[in-house]
Structure formats: structure tokens, C-alpha cells
Amino acid sequence: MEFRVDRTEFADAVGRAARALPARTPVPVLGGLLLEAAEGRLTVSGFDFEAAVRVAVDAEVGADGRVLVPGRRLADVCRVLPDGPVSCGLEASRFTVEADGTRFGLSTLPLAEYPALPVPPAPYGTVDAAAFAAAVGQVAVAAGRDDTLPVLTGVQLRLEGAEMTLSASDRYRYAVRRLAWRPETGDAEGAVEVLLPARRLLDVARVSARGGDLRVGLEAGGGSAGFEGGGTRTVLRLLDGRLPGYGTLFAMAGAAVAEADCEPLREAVRRVAVVAEANSPVRLDFSADGSVLVRAGYGDDVAAQSVPATLTGAAETTVAFSPAYLLDALTSFDTPRVRLELLGAGQRALLHAVAGDSSPTAHQHLLMSVRQLV
């Protein structure tokens, strides 16, 4: 095996594939990256049974071959290589990496013990990669981190007609984002729902954010989902179960409606939250005079800031939220204005994206307010 490749492309491919490597594993070969060189292409693959990532780049291939190299060690080497072309080869059981007079030798792992990579599922349709990446980032913030409740650590992907819906919830908040997508001919009828691990899907989003189209594949029977674009192919193992429905939760009959510029409100919350003790809320006092007073703290340690806001459906209303959850929600919106439907203290609050003629329901984020007020 022998190939020559640009250092930047090589380091990028290794870095992306290495994101699939497990942090700890009792199976040593799963800590390896599989390098395959053939026909002017180098592919770098990482796999841990939950996700498989395969990155392809152009390369000058002198001799075809395959090798399994310790992944994190190779990633460390790539980070310190000088710019320019990189020459790699296999000498007996040693993998060599050389660039501008710098030479590394790495041990190899037993290729025969490496499990077969999963077959990518059949294409189901395509979506704009940048729009998909933004949508994943907006909803994944609401996914749970508790691995004892795996369903709540996922992002639910629903495909129906020409619309894709992403949603996530950790029981205390619920984020939903809708966007257009293009199903394959004949696959547009009926709705399909799958649950994907949020952390893995965020990795897919980071890679796909470069633009172009992202092809989405689904396995018949619901075992895996695939994403391919920008020279990277990822296959994710699906989570079992599904998120609870949000239709009833998002029904906000009788709610007061407030609207404010997103950035000033977010910055006000960020500022006053510095005096909030652990588990203490940030309070929002909306009034009909065209402002909301954002404040936090107790006793002498307090902070407050007034921000312009409109309120309809009530003369005044007060709600309080966890500062971290409220900041996560406000940060997830990329529109100039945000709309809040408020049922009152200790009840649900629904945030909508508002931007020009875009649908106010394209991005929604539900939060539970707290009863305890500042």
C-alpha cells in the first residue's frame, strides 16, 4: 500500500472519521481507522457499531491496499504534520507517514479482526445540507443527556411528502423544526419516522454544513439511517422507541402573546443570569407599555434590564425560567424576532421563530416555566 495526499485533506478526512471512534472499548480494533487506497482515491473509515463514518478524498495511489491504524494516534500525527503533500505507505507491519522531512512510523492493528462496515441504506431523498445542519443544531439542544433514558437522547426525524420534521425533548423542553426536502420518486406517500442519537446526528450536521445536497437513506425495517454528502458517508444505528407526541402540548389556547427582538432579549438574559444562584430562575415581566423587564437574583445580589417587547391578550404577565434552558432556547433561533405564547407562571411557554414572511411554526421551542418567581 502506498499513496500521496494533500496534508489538509488527509487531516480533515482522518479527523472526521475519528469522530466515530469509541471513547473506550473492550475491542481494540474498534479504536482503529481503516484506510483504503485504490483508483486515485483514499477512504478513511471509523466504526463503533452505533455509527460508521467513511470519508473519501483524492490521492495519488502508487499501490492499492488496506490498513488498520490506531485512530487517535493517527489524528494526533495529522495535527502536527507540516503543510504540503504527505506520503504514506505500509512497510511490513508498520504504517509510515512522511511530509517535508518529518517521518512517523505507526503500528498497525489486525485487519482480519475488524468487523465489516454496515451497508448504507437505500437513498430515500435529498435535503439542502446547510439547512439540515442548522435545523439539527436548533432541535438537538433540547435532547436529553441521560443515557438511562435513551429515547430522550434522540432526535426524531419524520418524513412526510416534501416536508422533513426534526424534534427532540428531555421532558422539560421540546424543540421542533420543519424544513423542505426532496423525496425520491415513489417514496413521497405516507409518513416515515425514525429516532436517531442526537450526538451522532450533530456530528453529521457539522460535516454537512459545508453546503450542497445531503442524501438521506433509510433501511427497510428501520435498522439504520444513512447520510451522504461532501465526500462523507455516515450510517447511524437507530434508537428504539419514539418521542411522545407534541400536538396537545403545543396547543396554547388562551395564551398571552409577546414578541421581541431575539438578540436584545437573549443578551439581557445572559447578563442578568450572572447573579442567579444555582437552580434559581430568570424572571420576565411583560407589560402593555411595550417592554419586558428581565431580572434575576435575591436580596442585594440582583440584576435587571428592560428590553422592548409587545404584549397582546393580557395587560401584563410574568413568567420565570431556568436561565440555561431559556438561553438554549433563545440561542437556537436564527431569526430577528421571537414570539412567545405564555400561559402563566408554572405553565407552558411556546417560542416561535418570526422572520418576514417565513412561517412562524417552522421552528418552535416549548419550555416549562417555574412557579417560583424572583
Score class of each variant (00 low, 15 high):
residue 312 T to C: 03
residue 350 L to K: 03
residue 332 S to M: 02
residue 130 A to D: 11
residue 154 G to F: 01
residue 63 A to N: 09
residue 23 A to K: 13
residue 19 R to A: 13
residue 77 V to H: 05
residue 187 D to L: 15
residue 127 V to I: 13
residue 286 F to Y: 13
residue 313 G to Y: 11
residue 268 A to Q: 00
residue 104 F to S: 06
residue 97 V to D: 02
residue 4 R to A: 12
residue 171 R to H: 05
residue 142 A to I: 05
residue 233 R to K: 14
residue 168 A to V: 03
residue 38 A to P: 09
residue 191 A to S: 15
residue 177 R to E: 00
residue 72 R to N: 08
residue 190 G to W: 11
residue 155 V to T: 01
residue 255 A to Y: 06
residue 25 T to F: 10
residue 40 G to R: 13
residue 173 R to V: 02
residue 120 P to N: 08
residue 335 T to Q: 00
residue 358 S to D: 15
residue 326 L to D: 04
residue 323 P to Y: 08
residue 192 V to K: 12
residue 245 G to K: 02
residue 24 R to C: 09
residue 296 A to D: 10
residue 191 A to C: 08
residue 71 G to N: 08
residue 36 E to Q: 13
residue 181 W to H: 09
residue 50 E to W: 08
residue 371 R to C: 12
residue 308 P to G: 12
residue 297 G to R: 09
residue 146 D to W: 03
residue 273 A to P: 01
residue 157 L to W: 04
residue 3 F to V: 10
residue 166 L to K: 02
residue 289 D to S: 15
residue 272 V to E: 06
residue 99 A to P: 10
residue 159 L to Q: 01
residue 62 G to N: 09
residue 261 D to H: 01
residue 103 R to Q: 12
residue 182 R to Y: 01
residue 163 E to R: 15
residue 55 V to P: 01
residue 351 L to Q: 00
residue 162 A to R: 14
residue 200 R to T: 15
residue 167 S to A: 15
residue 189 E to Q: 14
residue 79 R to T: 09
residue 173 R to L: 04
residue 285 D to M: 04
residue 161 G to V: 05
residue 254 G to K: 11
residue 289 D to K: 08
residue 30 L to D: 05
residue 356 G to P: 09
residue 170 D to Q: 02
residue 289 D to M: 08
residue 97 V to P: 04
residue 5 V to L: 05
residue 90 L to R: 11
residue 184 E to K: 07
residue 140 A to R: 00
residue 256 A to Q: 05
residue 369 S to R: 03
residue 327 L to F: 02
residue 278 A to Q: 15
residue 209 A to F: 03
residue 125 G to D: 04
residue 348 R to F: 02
residue 257 V to Q: 12
residue 217 G to F: 04
residue 283 R to F: 02
residue 223 G to N: 06
residue 274 V to Q: 03
residue 222 G to Q: 08
residue 229 G to P: 06
residue 135 A to Y: 01
residue 47 F to D: 15
residue 92 A to M: 05
residue 150 P to L: 06
residue 286 F to A: 05
